[in-house]
């Protein structure tokens, strides 16, 4: 699934490790999500959305318009 996680992270000048610490996941998980190789679970998607203060749909794109 496409997402804007890398862009949002870069805007705040966070490293992957910084973002991982804020989300309470591993840096490997953040990397896998950013590259679209791993889709986050619903609870993690909500945590990401709350962290960036954006709706989930503004961060993740399932390609269905």
């Amino acid at each position: 699934m496409n997402n804007r996680l890398r862009v949002l992270r870069a805007e705040r000048q966070w490293s992957q490790a910084d973002l991982a610490a804020r989300l309470d996941v591993s840096r490997q998980a953040v990397n896998a999500i950013e590259t679209g190789k791993h889709d986050p679970s619903l609870p993690l998607a909500f945590r990401i959305a709350r962290l960036f203060a954006m709706p989930i749909e503004a961060i993740f794109d399932d390609g269905i318009s």
């Binding site: 996941v25 591993s26 791993h38 993690l44």
Partner: peptide
């Protein structure tokens, strides 16, 4: 069980 990615 560290996180969901490693669990996958």
């Amino acid at each position: 069980r560290t996180d969901e990615y490693l669990l996958s």
